[in-house]
Design a protein around this nucleic acid. Structure first.
Length: 784
RNA sequence: GAGCCCAUGGUCUAGUGGUUAUGACGUCUCCCUUACACGGAGAAGGCCGGGAGUUCGAAUCUCUCUGGGCUCACCA
């Protein structure tokens, strides 16, 4: 370690500390600021808080920083006089917990009884959730934990199902047997949004097809030779001189000896590989488009377990990887293999399992999001984004977004509430308002098939994509389907706060779904936070091992130092790099504040309850400086930008208030050679200034401000106060600021140059402009 | 390949046509001054990514290049 480590050892020696913070944390538990009163006369402010996923890995520091920012939104809005609805939920559906459970118990989902598996997942989630709640409370998160919701609760799943049923009735859902992204590892279809592209090394194989009508051969290059049996065409670029004569002829597929057309198509790029492409069902998304365009008949060569089907003949039953090795061997034996080239290939992978995805035709449900595109883009345009430029990320995605496959072949999720008639397969949709589990329950009593009258049904065994649940969080927290009065007063919410990483999922799906259901956008503001990166600017991830556990940092430097760092580090929406050194810097500022408060506290109640008849020039000057700092900071608070108040208050406190003002009035505050009136003015001003600093800092550093506030000013929590308003302004005093600080710096410098102590007398002439501060300056510098 | 965003001392940042270009962290020197050595006083460190243009004047406006980030598409 570097030399900072020994400093850290003493970090708790005195001053503000994590232990004091813990005391405050306990107090927070007792006096809830998070209670929301629907009957309040204050203006309403509702936050759509991202429900974190209790995923098992230590929650990384970037996420904790983001949640502390979201908390600052809630706290600052309370202090701006709003009645704040600040819910918190846990996102508990879907793949992450299933994978976690499989790993933890060393079991496979599909080899475990569904009921049993669900139980194990739920237990795992409960443990992970309590860990997550502890972290949230440690960072001072002031949401309503008493009403914490879970997306896997019966109540929440009832809502997810009810909204699906409404979409169904509105004709927004369709069933399609389409080639879809399929993750073999997860055993489910996944959405485009869940795909992550990675550069992976792969083999590009060159092999020959015999042209039927001539003696010529045609060489194709493929990264997926194992799909050979599903090859239905060969395409070449019509401009490609090498193949011009072959267009319209036929080629014989090696090994399988089937015949395919050689077709001219511009998507074949002469410069890549051999310039000739085999079109298979389905090697990539381009194949899907070509099959559709050329009207080819698909052959299903990979099944849902990732093994090759009978179509593949000799390769049948092999996994994709072993089939690839095997086919290369066969081609070699056959004499048709030309060469194998190692290339790097941008491969679509599943963002959960990190395995390459397959494109397999699957029968799934889709939501018609494309039909809503225009309308949704229109309402998105009306939303206020913070920062503004991130709106573009969403627009870019909306322009290209496809219909959303919403069904998943998994266990731990909200069940698709559908049954099918055993006789005629007609689907049956139940009434909304109940939680249905078709995989183990019968449809409600008395259900008969509308089409054929049969009473025999079987249930759909699939679940929904997790985003189907979380995309209606704003409806759940406003009690959309359970409390019409509450809903009408709270929906739409005021703000959606979330990370930039889930714009094309949570944000996009929320807008689409809520708009379709309510015909209104779910909120009017969208706050997009940047990502926390490691000290080199790399994304933190478990696999890279560069993740930082926020609890370690909080235990070492305190939650307020962490929160202050998060607020002051980067402007809203931009990424920020983790830096322990800078968190230490924040801690130093809090120590400074602590000591300032300690000094002011010395004077007791004097100057807190008494108000002076008149204020003296130095006091007017700092009050004007304060006025301007407060004004700037409030602007930041109002625009959810905590970068502004954190830096402005730090700058004011550290560079103006403490070194100049406090030093100037110290003698006066002690009352030495000053009148009672002069003394009172100083102490009053010290307190007024500290009060304002504490109030403006409270949303960012809730612990230290609470501690100082309650020890100096009130029994009542600072978090129940409002920001300072109607502070006096003495505009004419602002012109003195630089003259004062310059003069002080000059005197200090001179004393140092002459090797005398700061207390020693010195003879320096006070500039003309500063005559009104003469008495304070004389006392401060011991001027003769 | 396309779109969007960004570019100020080692790091973060202020600055929106005229400043000796802010401030913080870090670095170096000196100082245990009674709120605070988790402190204080100083110092070093920047041709404001390159180029061209608009202008009397550009970190600031325009164009272009370069470099980064994000997203999309393509890579058989």
């Amino acid at each position: 370690m570097d030399k900072h480590s020994d400093k850290q050892l003493f970090s708790d020696a005195k001053g503000w500390s994590r232990d004091l913070e813990k005391e405050v944390q306990n107090r927070f538990a007792n006096h809830e600021v998070s209670n929301f009163d629907i009957k309040s006369s204050k203006p309403f402010f509702g936050i759509d808080t991202p429900p974190p996923y209790p995923s098992g890995r230590p929650w990384h520091l970037g996420a904790a920083a983001q949640y502390s920012q979201i908390d600052a939104i809630a706290r600052s809005q309370r202090m701006l006089g709003r009645e704040v609805l600040f819910p918190i939920g846990m996102d508990r559906n879907g793949l992450p917990v299933e994978r976690y459970t499989e790993k933890k118990y060393e079991i496979k989902m599909r080899e475990t009884e569904r009921e049993k598996f669900i139980e194990l997942c739920r237990g795992a989630l409960d443990d992970l959730q309590s860990e997550m709640v502890d972290i949230l409370k440690a960072i001072g998160f002031s949401a309503d934990f008493k009403r914490m919701y879970r997306t896997d609760s019966d109540e929440y799943r009832t809502l997810t199902q009810a909204t699906f049923i409404k979409h169904w009735k509105d004709g927004m859902i369709y069933r399609g047997n389409r080639p879809t992204n399929y993750c073999v590892e997860c055993g489910t279809t996944i959405a485009d949004a869940e795909i992550e592209y990675k550069e992976l090394p792969t083999k590009l194989a060159y092999f020959n097809f015999q042209v039927k009508e001539s003696k010529n051969k045609i060489t194709i290059a493929s990264t997926r030779p194992e799909l050979l049996a599903a090859c239905r065409a060969i395409i070449v670029n019509p401009e490609d001189e090498r193949y011009k004569g072959m267009i319209g002829k036929h080629a014989i597929v090696p090994i399988y000896k089937t015949e395919v057309n050689i077709i001219g198509h511009p998507s074949a790029k002469p410069e890549f590989g051999s310039g000739a492409v085999m079109v298979c069902s389905y090697g990539d998304y381009n194949d899907v488009l070509l099959f559709k365009e050329l009207g080819l008949e698909e052959k299903i060569i990979i099944n849902d377990t990732g093994r090759l089907t009978d179509v593949a003949g000799k390769l049948s039953g092999l996994t994709v990887n072993s089939a690839r090795k095997e086919i290369l061997k066969l081609l070699q034996e056959d004499g048709t293999l030309e060469k194998v080239q190692e290339i790097s290939h941008r491969t679509p992978t599943c963002d959960r399992s990190k395995n390459p995805i397959e494109i397999i035709p699957m029968d799934e449900y889709y939501m018609k999001v494309r039909d809503l595109k225009e309308k949704v883009m229109e309402i998105t345009n009306e939303l206020n984004f913070i920062p503004d430029q991130h709106k573009q990320i969403l627009f870019n995605w909306m322009k290209v977004a496809m219909d959303w496959p919403i069904s998943r072949r998994r266990f731990y999720g909200t069940e698709i509430p559908l049954w099918y008639c055993k006789k005629c397969s007609e689907p049956y949709v139940p009434q909304p308002g109940k939680y249905y589990k078709p995989w183990k329950e019968n449809p409600p009593n008395g259900t008969t098939c509308k089409k054929c009258g049969s009473k025999e049904f079987y249930g759909d065994v699939r679940t929904f994509d997790t985003w189907m649940d979380s995309s209606v969080s704003s409806l759940f927290v406003t009690r959309y389907s359970t409390d019409p009065e509450f809903y009408s007063k709270t929906y739409p919410l005021t703000i959606r706060a979330q990370g930039i990483d889930i714009v094309r999922t949570w944000l996009y799906y929320s807008i689409v779904r809520c708009f379709e259901l309510t015909k209104r956008p779910p909120w009017s503001n969208v706050w997009i936070g940047g990502m926390g990166l490691d000290e080199h600017g790399e994304k933190m991830s478990k696999s890279k091992g560069n993740g930082v556990d926020p609890m370690l940092i909080i235990e070492r430097y305190g939650s307020d130092a962490f929160r202050f760092w998060a607020a002051s580090e980067a402007s809203p929406g931009s990424n920020f790099l983790f830096s322990e050194q800078r968190i230490m810097g924040s801690q130093k500022f809090l120590t400074k504040l602590w000591n300032v408060a300690k000094f002011i506290k010395e004077f007791g109640d004097y100057g807190i309850n008494e108000k002076p008849e008149k204020l003296f020039p130095t006091d007017k000057w700092i009050l004007e400086e304060l006025y301007s700092a407060v004004k700037d900071s409030l602007e930041g608070h109002r625009s959810f930008n905590f970068f502004i108040p954190s830096n402005r208050i730090r700058e004011f406190t550290w560079n103006v208030f403490a070194p100049h003002y406090i030093e100037m009035v110290k003698a006066r505050a002690y009352g030495k050679d000053f009148s009672k009136e002069e003394r009172l003015s100083a102490i009053y001003t010290l307190n007024q200034t500290l009060r304002a600093i504490l109030l403006l800092l409270a949303p960012i550093c809730p612990f230290i401000t609470e501690s100082i506030w309650t020890s100096l000013y009130s029994e009542e929590s600072i978090h129940k106060m409002e920001f300072p308003k109607d502070l006096p302004s003495f505009k004419e005093m602002s012109k003195y600021s630089s003259i004062i600080t310059d003069f002080n710096t000059k005197v200090w410098g001179e004393k140092r140059a002459n090797g005398i102590s700061l207390r020693d007398p010195v003879s320096v002439r006070i500039p003309e402009e500063l005559t009104i501060f003469e008495k304070d300056l004389k006392a401060m510098h011991n001027l003769k």
